[in-house]
């Protein structure tokens, strides 16, 4: 068995409300696994169950070889976790935070010293040991939090929205680090609501309102889940165009991206000309039209509006 995480029908209910609804997926050893979904989709709840912090209402998951239902304590020993809220102590210095969490994870003496140096190095904070953590800017704080989360070199790493609210450059650096861990064999499960970050992942799942609606690697998702062709149209008046296009029978999806419109048409509509004709027939002027490969965003909008393939079949 080559999986770090196997989740089966994980379900979490808060009273009548189902936050996570029968979610199943598998994460291979050493891969970067993305967890996508809007706010409130159930990402954090799923992660907290996988870390042994929250008991599932039903279903189970095996994490690093241990069941989260039966052996949550053993699960905790083999994982690293960085929660969505910044959870180092702002009133401790960088060095003190590292030493504290190192000791809490059972490190001591020379090994603790060695790991401390390593954490300082990967989070790029050598020479700033005595700075109060609260005085650091957001992006650097997150890097330190990541360093602290891996101080005990866990085999599986859970990162809950590690890059939210962080500037693009810091985000890029952050992903370099994640890649580095993955190269060293660590399995990384990361949640995000930045769709472009999904491209950095080997595999992703998309959840909406607690349900899994798509899974696979980002490239395959783009071709597999959209049963049609994608076009991009540039126009001065996208809102009006969208209303016109929505009435057309051959259109599956229309969505606006600034001054551009993305259109998914039925399979038989392959050429931009046909679309352009339709627009002129309706007395609408467009600037440019090109056929494109659908982006993940197109895929997700499509899925959110039409449900997953499975849901459609049922």
């Amino acid at each position: 068995m080559n999986y770090s995480i196997v989740a089966e029908n994980l379900t979490k209910k808060f009273g009548d409300f189902t936050a996570v609804d029968s979610v199943s997926f598998k994460v291979e050893k050493g891969e970067i696994f993305g967890f996508l979904g809007a706010n409130g989709a159930g990402k954090s709840t799923t992660i907290r169950m996988l870390c042994g912090l929250l008991e599932p209402t039903s279903g189970d998951a095996v994490v690093g070889g241990f069941s989260i239902m039966n052996e949550p304590d053993k699960v905790k020993q083999s994982i690293g976790y960085m929660s969505q809220r910044f959870s180092l102590y702002n009133d401790l210095t960088i060095e003190e935070n590292i030493e504290f969490f190192g000791a809490v994870y059972g490190l001591k003496g020379k090994l603790l010293e060695k790991r401390k140096k390593w954490v300082l190095e990967i989070s790029n904070l050598i020479g700033k040991e005595r700075t109060l953590t609260g005085d650091l800017p957001g992006g650097i704080k997150q890097r330190l939090a990541l360093g602290v989360a891996v101080i005990h070199k866990p085999k599986i790493l859970f990162l809950d929205e590690p890059t939210s609210g962080v500037d693009p450059i810091s985000r890029r650096n952050f992903w370099d680090l994640i890649n580095r861990f993955s190269d060293e064999g660590t399995t990384v499960l990361v949640t995000t609501h930045y769709l472009e970050e999904a491209e950095y992942c080997n595999d992703i799942i998309l959840i909406n309102a607690g349900r899994l609606i798509a899974e696979g690697n980002p490239q395959r998702l783009k071709t597999e889940y959209i049963d049609g062709n994608a076009f991009e149209i540039e126009t001065e008046n996208p809102v009006e165009l969208m209303d016109i296009l929505k009435k057309a029978k051959f259109i599956i999806d229309v969505s606006i991206f600034g001054k551009k419109i993305h259109v998914i048409t039925k399979k038989q509509f392959e050429k931009p000309d046909e679309l352009e004709n339709y627009c002129t027939q309706n007395e609408f002027k467009i600037d440019r039209i090109t056929r494109i490969v659908p982006t993940l965003e197109d895929v997700f909008i499509h899925l959110l509006e039409h449900g997953s393939k499975n849901a459609q079949q049922n």
């Binding site: 809220r85 959870s87 809490v104």
Partner: peptide, 10 residues
């Protein structure tokens, strides 16, 4: 929220 980080350690 620091309690979460402690809870996940053993």
């Amino acid at each position: 929220g620091t309690i979460e980080q402690l809870n996940v350690s053993s």
